[in-house]
Design a protein around this nucleic acid. Structure first.
Lengths: 297, 297
DNA sequence: GGTCAATTCAACCAAATCATTCATAGCTGC
DNA sequence: GCAGCTATGAATGATTTGGTTGAATTGACC
């Protein structure tokens, strides 16, 4: 686990903005970037100074994660705290203002909070509120659909900002079960798992769990997620999950169920084989611990 | 492995299109290409901007690899025309090779053909073939789902590469009707209409036509598309379309129905009010003629 | 506290890019 | 044809960039 960094090395900044270490060093020595030094004379760049420099020069951040801004306690410095963002994001999605919503989410991603917190917080809250609009006005359905399309695009863009997964990375597969048409939660799960270092394959909505299970076993996947949002037949799914959990467990593949109705479909008898994640942050935690365990073996 | 370049130097772009560095510099300084700068003042060109410029100017890309878009072995001829592309694209989507599929589609887009031909040709053919896999093997469903997710991401990227729509652009709204879960065709339609100069709002799959109609009339939309892929109740939809067509027609909003089952749901009695597009190219043709007529008024 | 691999240091150099100028080629209107 | 205009490509010396060198520092581990 990478600890939150308040100070960047010249290399960190160089990689983040797609420049060379030499250039960053020169800019520092020119006085364009104000830095601190270690006792031995190594340059250390405060994140705030890095952000200021990037903004002043209008530079493009190619690898945001190198700035180490994520996993921050969203206290200060960050332009937009995730905590204050749900209202503006909700408004943007409500109005169908895609560029604004994109700016809000990408800023938050660049400026701070972990991906899990971002998705669990403003994004989830906004979409949840939008999802209830149709109860008051049938046209709320349209607003919700439009918001989902916008969010899908932004999540897709976020994926491009994540570091590329290594070739030998662990495989994670998943989707929403048959009868569940919601695409976003599963896409989010894939995103989070990719951030954790998995090679994630998202099969999207309405995908039979048994098929994904077969696929996971064949391809030696190490994690299978099931994203459950629609109120589908609980009894059937519970039994299905119990059955596939046994097969997956014997192959060393973890089964994680998440989503609005996840709690109802996990049979207490299957605890230990069927894991349950209430949020994206929890999914990330589980996934990371699973990877760590694999490494220690 | 070289990481994908997000920023090009003037020389990169110059070599890619077979021009001189001087020209690229001049185009940048003229404002024809929008760029970023390094701290020292060197020009850095985002790939998206390069793609937009190349298409806008109708330039020929001599060395696509300089743009970092060709990550597949270029054993075949330098130019893969849209006509020869369906086989490689099908193979890429079948294998779940997202970067390869992306490279193929973006290269074809870069080559300058109309978006309609690209979508009607290789993309549609590949997805159609993939959609029939499940008849031989139930796991074909997974392959299809995965391919759809990949294609969605690429289409999303394509949208970002289209020139921004003008502020006062005509509005077009649409989606797939209630009961039709297919998201891609509607997304493609939105993309094509945006290319034609419309401000397109895609409500996605499973969206009641009556609601979209109300929305279109309220917002003074000039075009409403209905993308019909799933074999849903023809009788009901035909009647619905007939009814909304009258209302839309009185407001000067065109109604276009497209997709696999479009022919069946257009009542001959409604001809003239319910337009029918067999392909994306045809949709583009209709949309453009509609815009032209508006201008001549 | 000590060891050791990885990182960063300062200094240097080759290559690339900068802004500017100038020459050439193509086109238009007379 | 020819003068005028524009676009392009090729030079110029100055500046910026990115890579390399051996030495020093750092951070993690024992």
């Amino acid at each position: 686990m990478e600890t939150a960094k308040h100070l960047l090395t010249p290399r960190d900044l160089a990689e983040a903005i797609g420049a060379s270490e030499s250039s960053v060093r020169r800019w520092v020595d020119n006085g364009q970037i104000h830095i601190a030094r270690t006792a031995g004379g190594h340059r250390r760049i405060p994140v705030g100074e890095a952000v200021r420099f990037i903004r002043r020069m209008g530079l493009i951040v190619v690898h945001p994660e190198k700035l180490g801004l994520r996993n921050w306690p969203s206290d200060r410095g960050a332009d937009i705290g995730a905590a204050d963002m749900d209202q503006p994001l909700y408004a943007a999605l409500l109005a169908g203002d895609a560029p604004l919503a994109r700016g809000l989410i990408l800023s938050a991603f660049l400026a701070g909070g972990s991906l899990g917190n971002l998705l669990d917080g403003p994004v989830r809250l906004s979409l949840h509120r939008l999802g209830e609009l149709w109860q008051h006005d049938s046209r709320g359905i349209l607003v919700e659909h439009r918001a989902i399309e916008i969010a899908r695009g932004i999540l897709n863009e976020l994926q491009g900002l994540l570091p590329a997964t290594a070739d030998g990375a662990a495989l994670a597969v998943g989707g929403a079960p048959e009868g569940d048409p919601y695409v976003l939660p599963s896409q989010m799960a894939g995103l989070v798992l990719q951030e954790c270092g998995y090679r994630a394959i998202n099969f999207g909505a309405n995908t039979p769990v048994e098929l994904v299970t077969e696929w996971a076993i064949e391809r030696r996947a190490e994690l299978l997620w099931v994203s459950l949002t629609a109120p589908i037949d609980v009894e059937v799914l519970r039994q299905t999950l119990g059955e596939v959990a046994v097969r997956l467990d014997s192959q060393g593949c973890a089964l994680v169920v998440g989503g609005r109705h996840a709690g109802e479909v996990v049979d207490p008898a299957d605890r230990g084989r069927v894991h349950h994640a209430d949020s994206m942050a929890e999914l990330a935690r589980f996934a990371k611990s699973r990877l760590a365990k694999k490494f220690s073996d």
